[in-house]
Design a protein around this nucleic acid. Sequence first.
RNA 1: GGCCCCAUAGCUCAACUGAAUAGAGCAUUUGACUACGGAUCAAAAGGUUACAGGUUUGAAUCCUGUUGGGGUCACCA
Length: 598
Amino acid sequence: MITPDNFIASKAAEAVKALYGADIDTAALQVQVTRKEFEGDYTLVVFPLLKVSRKNPEATGTEIGEWLKSNTGEIDGYNVIKGFLNISFSNVYWNRLFAGIVAAGDGFGRLPSTGRTVMVEFSSPNTNKPLHLGHIRNILLGWSVSRLLEANGHDVMKVNLVNDRGIHICKSMLAWLKTGNGETPESSGKKGDHLVGDYYVAYSNMYKAQVEELMKGGMSKEDAEKNAPVQKEAQEMLRKWEQGDEETVALWKKMNSWVYDGFDKTYDALGITFDRTYYESQTYLLGKALVQKGLEMGIFEKDPDGTVWCDLTSDGLDRKLLLRGDGTSVYMTQDLGTAEQRFSEYNLDEHIYVVGNEQNYHFQVLKLILKKLGFAWADNIHHLSYGMVELPEGKMKSREGTVVDADDLLEKMYTTAKETSSELGKIDNMDAEAQDKLFRMISLGALKYFIIKVDPKKTMLFDPKESIDFNGNTGPFIQYTHARIRSILRKAAERGLKTDKSVLSDDMPLSAKEVRLVKLINQYPAKIAEGGEAYSPAVIANYAYELAKEFNQYYHDTPILREEDERLLKFRLVLIDTVADVLVKAMDILGISLPDRM
RNA sequence: GGCCCCAUAGCUCAACUGAAUAGAGCAUUUGACUACGGAUCAAAAGGUUACAGGUUUGAAUCCUGUUGGGGUCACCA
């Protein structure tokens, strides 16, 4: 698709060739949207061209501007300020551009299929505690990046890897056995993941008490931590689990199933699904064969105590453990194994891991070891490293009880949405079910937008004392804009005015604001590409906000239904309908729905 | 201590990867015709882009150093 900026770039390259006889790469030409304080649509920065023109910036700009004006039908004006050539397109040009967008319909902004298969792993929770705000960022990011990559033409597979085994689960199980009295989600009325999480906390309390007791008896802190009875019991339980002890495995299955029920409810509330869920209990043995292979290749080494290591010191990193002395594997081992399994099973072109930036080192090592093992696809692993969500007092710490629980937060958002809507009183005639659906939509819109609008790489701050905003640069602002457009279109329909594409024509007189809207709408596919390249749904969020804001400005000083010229009125209906469509598309990528009224 | 990341308005975030006077929202102050939906719009005020050098016609952006913050270097995952 030819966009105005690459149109200018290619024409400017022709101009340079004609005027100065130089061949210049269009990629080297800088074309940007003209800043509002200047006249023009797009701006060519002429500084880089001075070497070939051998003239001053003003003269160079003027010559190129003049050439463009007389050699293209699309460009009908220009001005030069300092080293900037501001170019204006004709009214006909904008009309045709807009007609092209309207004609593209649903396909607008959906890039052609690349045939590439991309796996995105995200969420990846432990089964010993409920999901919190940090998980929410992970989940929303994983979901929206997946949607964004789909819009970029890839086949995307969304997967979850549940950490369902290990000492931490045994701790919850142990505490439940000791103090639970057979409590279940049904008997307690608690959501399963919260119930199990409570026993994890109960374990920690028992453990702390025992350590203190031992220290009072004169034991050092270190020894006390190692010798606390519950700690030993938990380790014993893990051993039993690994040996397949029937009772232990049965309890493990039961408690994990409670957790899954709980997680499913949260995923459901967030509108998230996966194409496949992996369980570590089924993958933790993977990778051992690769360790053997590495030993044979001479890139790993075995110490006298039986441990296996990969020495990365020559790469500026440390020695990395791959097998314990007893031959059991560690986190890295199974990650090596699962990567190999997935790439071969699904013939992946790319694998994205949505994992916090605290694991940057882990993924650096993972890729490096896979490369040493000779896997060319190691380069197609991408760690989508995102920043932590911090509270005003710093990091969330489960031990200190400062985590923001996902379910609590969702409920709180729902209440706020309900209160706000009720105060405004515009939906009083909606039935209860529709209202519930709407409150859900708005609260999710606010939460999701709040999280996604921030550049994934950056640490972000959440203040539980200040509720997430519903005004300004927010999800509800965009939802409101959409509801407003739909309202106008409804009223038009009541008057028998349907949005009719046939009114579009080359000579429709466009106002400056209308041109701005067309320009912005036209940027959408480029934003999809840009966001996809950067793995950043934030690009799409900020774009949607800009478009909504631009529409609201337009709306305020342009009559639509009150316009007397029927041709203009009909054109405007098509225009705002297109704005609404693009907003829906953009927000859909973020997993945010837009209501018709609110 | 080694390595990695970060620092932009009082607060939360942008800035097309080097361009014009660094932009939005919140909070503050002020204004908007009986409203095509006021969860909106317009305006004011708010900045030495942590600091010091350097490269460049041009730096929040690239390089070096300093300060402050975070992460990581587990027989945890």
